[in-house]
Design a protein around this nucleic acid. Structure first.
Lengths: 232, 232
DNA sequence: CGTGCGATTGACTGTCCTCAACATGGGTGG
DNA sequence: CCACCCATGTTGAGGACAGTCAATCGCACG
């Protein structure tokens, strides 16, 4: 049931550094779990009791102020690892943005296993370092970029992660992808309001840099000019 | 010369998890180095060739846009670890804010040593996870807080890190500390302009929440009300 | 005593937010 | 099947907060 053999992320998730035998043991420490869109896995401030691999779907990590203002501080795609090992508190809320499947582990059991398998810890370290680099890059966006620059950066960033597999076209001179986010969530990622996001998207559309065939679909028409707008 | 015995951070830096013998070996992989205020250790985009422990002084990690807008994405105090192990590129500039001393290691040698000492890697992992939590918390500030909230948060944050050792007073009902930053750098930490920082500080002073005896010194007069202004 | 750097203050501007109306589209029930 | 509704997104008008530009201050240093 929790067999790794048919796991779609077995070659990319952190467990890919383990031997089959080791992986089977780790697998049995936890279990697969389904989340429906909107469902929250753990809350900011909770005791950290669970960590997980994302198998399918998209999760968001978010934190918020007393009056409800929210900031999304991370996004987890399939093969990503979520949760806070080696610490007793989760400092952000983890929720499913789309329907999702994860393989979750009780933190204690996972930590014990990890400490006995340094190569797994090493893999987690590498990921965490990359996450830290990314989040610092995002701080530049939040602190210093204009609304237009934020959206240009966001769209290019998404296009890297979400390049539609279904490339029916002969070539792909303009790429197309489907956002897993609604406008409000884009706003919460970029530190803007939903109205500003909407306005900037229509601006970019009017300027023929992008096309929005549908609320969630994006076509990048002019990657170069979009790149220039990111100001980096 | 590079003896650990007299190192002021030996009990707090990552090497504190090592035995004396191991630590001596690690020590000899690198060397102590002095940095004067303003001096840059490594540049954003450089090949990552060095990592280091901070022994004394304060360093900043920063990244910037094409036109010079800068965002400070991290601050390193004594006993902190800087640089990017297990990755070939540094994604932010590391510079000394005050005169500083570090113990730096060629990345390759350090990595080899770390891989042979899982408990050191584990310590680095713990630190990196904490750093990631902190940087995500800071994203909330950058994306969602007002100028006033940013400054209140900043001042309380600094007071935690910088509580003046020299507590001559019987008790410390109001705490005092000296910022290692000028106004421009505060602005670059908070994602504001220098003028806004200055104005907000005078506001807080007029409201008798703080006192600024000198450009770098801060007295917190009313920690509770300041806490309320952080809106969390 | 002048020079220069950092910080402060002021006047004005612009970007983004707020509030509100309106559009769109998918789902449900009559 | 259509009318209605609700959720989501767009558009508009007006305002506020922080940015820009510029003058002034204070202080350390030569």
């Amino acid at each position: 049931m929790t067999a790794c053999a048919d796991c779609p992320v077995r070659n990319r998730a952190i467990c890919s550094v383990l031997e089959d035998g080791e992986r089977a043991i780790l697998s049995q420490i936890g279990h697969r779990q389904s989340l429906s869109a909107g469902q929250t896995l753990m809350w900011e401030g909770d005791k950290s009791s669970v960590v997980a691999n994302v198998i399918e779907g998209v999760l968001k990590l978010s934190t918020s102020l007393g009056d409800g203002r929210e900031q999304i501080v991370g996004i987890a795609y399939p093969a990503d690892f979520v949760g806070r090992p080696f610490g007793d508190q989760t400092r952000y809320t983890i929720s499913a943005i789309t329907d999702a499947r994860i393989h979750s582990f009780p933190r204690a059991g996972f930590e014990k296993f990890a400490q006995e398998h340094p190569k797994l810890e090493h893999r987690i370290l590498e990921r965490t370092l990359t996450e830290l680099d990314n989040s610092r890059q995002w701080m530049l966006l939040l602190g210093r970029k204009t609304a237009q620059e934020k959206l240009a950066t966001f769209l290019l960033d998404m296009s890297e992660r979400l390049k539609d597999e279904c490339c029916d076209e002969i070539l792909a001179p303009l790429d197309k992808f489907t956002l897993p986010f609604g406008r409000q969530q884009i706003a919460n990622i970029l530190g803007l309001t939903i109205e500003t996001v909407s306005r900037q998207l229509t601006e970019l559309t009017k300027a023929d840099l992008i096309k929005l065939p549908d609320q969630r679909e994006v076509l990048i028409l002019d990657r170069n000019r979009l790149q220039e707008l990111t100001d980096l």
